[in-house]
Design a protein around this nucleic acid. Structure first.
Length: 330
DNA sequence: GCGTCCAGGTCTACC
DNA sequence: GGTAGACCTGGACGC
C-alpha cells in the first residue's frame, strides 16, 4: 500500500558521544538499517517504518552534530497528524535503532585488552550496533536468515516487502518498508510460500504475525523491560524462533552465532583449539562471549563483523573471510 | 539443459 | 539431554 505522507513533524535527538552517524546507519554488516530500500547520502538517510495504526511513515534523518557532540535532526512524514502515543512509540523506536543514548565508553575500555578488538574500535570509532524498527521486522530478518545464504535471505526479504510491504512517499522519495503483521495474518500460508519463496518458513512467519497481533509476542519496548533471560525464553517459545533467532530479535545483548561466524570467532579468539563438532564450538564460543564480554558481547560481534577487511589487512590476520568473501561464500 | 549437491537454523522423533 | 533427519529453495557445478 502506498502512503502519500504530507504531514511533517520535526525532532532534534541528542546522543552520547562518541557517535558516528554514517557507520551506524549506512549499511551496517552489509544490511539495511531500517529497511532495504532506504537511501543514504552525505549524512542524510531517507527511510521508512510501518506503524500499525497509521501505516507507513517516512523518516528523514540528518546528522547535524559531530562525533563528539552528536545531534540528529529527524523529520517524520505521515499521511495524517500522529497522536501523541504514536509519536512517542515512533521516537523511542528510532532512538533505539540509532543507539544514540548508548554509552559505549565501558566497551571501548574493555576493547583495549585484546589487539583485534582494539583495532576494530579504532577503525569503527563511534559506531553503534543497533538496527531495525520493531519486533516484527527483526523477526522477519531472523526467520529468513535461517538455513539460507545471504543472497537467498535478501531475495526472500525483497519478495516479502515487494509483495506485502508498505510504501511511504515523502520528500521526493518512495521508500518501501516492512509489511504490517496484520497484513501477513490475512495472507494464505501457501500464497506466502509461493510468492515469497519462503519454503517451510512461510508457516513460521504467519504464526509469528499472529503472535504479534494477539500480543503473545510483545514489542521491543516490552521485551526491553523484561530481563534478558525472560525475553529469550518468551521468544524461543514462539514457533520457528530458536536460540539464534531469539538473539537477533531480542533488544538485549546477544551473540547470534551461525555456521560461518563460528568459524570466524573461533579463529580469532581460540586459534589454538580444535573441535570435535560444530555444536561443541558453538557452545564453548557462546559461553566464552558471555563470560569475557558480558553485556558488550553484541558490540564485539558487530565490530568484528563490520571490520573484517581492515582486520585482515592491518593485523595480517588470515581470516579467509573478508566481507566480499563472506558474501561470495554464502 | 538436466541432475546432483550444498548452504543453513529449527523442529520433531527417537534413543 | 543429546542427536539424526527432514524441511525449502536457488545457485554452483559436472556432465
Amino acid at each position: 500500500m502506498i502512503q502519500k505522507c504530507h504531514v511533517a513533524s520535526n525532532f532534534m535527538l541528542e546522543g552520547i558521544p562518541p557517535y558516528n552517524f554514517e557507520l551506524s546507519v549506512h549499511a551496517p554488516c552489509g544490511y539495511h538499517w531500517m529497511t532495504p530500500s532506504e537511501v543514504y547520502s552525505n549524512n542524510v538517510i531517507w527511510t521508512a517504518a510501518p506503524l500499525s495504526s497509521a501505516g507507513a511513515v517516512g523518516l528523514k534523518l540528518e546528522f547535524v552534530g559531530s562525533v563528539h557532540k552528536p545531534v540528529v535532526s529527524l523529520t517524520v512524514f505521515s499521511r495524517r497528524k500522529l497522536a501523541s502515543d504514536e509519536k512517542s512509540k515512533l521516537l523511542k523506536n528510532v532512538e533505539r535503532a540509532l543507539g544514540l543514548r548508548g554509552d559505549v565508553s565501558e566497551f571501548y575500555k574493555m576493547a583495549e585488552t585484546h589487539p583485534v578488538l582494539k583495532q576494530a574500535v579504532t577503525d569503527l570509532y563511534g559506531m553503534r550496533g543497533s538496527w531495525g524498527f520493531d519486533v516484527f521486522d527483526r523477526a522477519i530478518v531472523a526467520l529468513t536468515s535461517q538455513n539460507a545464504p545471504m543472497n537467498r535471505t535478501r531475495q526472500m526479504i525483497n519478495a516479502i516487502i515487494g509483495t506485502y510491504g508498505e510504501t511511504a512517499e515523502f520528500d521526493d522519495h518512495a521508500i518501501q518498508t516492512w509489511p504490517l503483521p496484520q497484513t501477513i495474518v490475512e495472507v494464505d500460508a501457501q500464497e506466502l510460500k509461493e510468492r515469497c519463496k519462503l519454503g517451510y518458513r512461510a508457516a513460521y512467519l504467519k504464526d509469528l504475525a499472529k503472535a504479534v497481533v494477539d500480543g503473545a509476542c510483545p514489542d521491543l519496548e516490552e521485551l526491553e523491560k523484561m530481563g534478558p533471560d525472560q525475553a529469550k525464553k518468551l521468544l524461543t517459545g514462539l514457533k520457528g524462533i530458536g536460540q539464534y533467532s531469539a538473539e537477533i530479535v531480542s533488544p538485549h545483548p546477544g551473540f547470534p552465532l551461525d555456521i560461518w561466524s563460528i568459524r570466524l570467532f573461533t579463529k580469532i579468539f581460540m586459534p589454538e583449539k580444535s573441535w570435535s563438532s560444530l555444536a561443541e564450538a558453538m557452545k564453548v564460543m557462546r559461553k566464552y562471549a558471555e563470560n569475557e564480554w558480558g553485556r558488550w558481547r553484541d558490540y564485539v560481534f558487530t565490530y568484528i563483523i563490520n571490520d573484517l577487511e581492515n582486520l585482515s589487512r592491518k593485523l595480517g590476520l588470515k581470516l579467509g573471510l573478508t566481507v566480499a568473501e563472506v558474501l561470495e561464500e554464502t
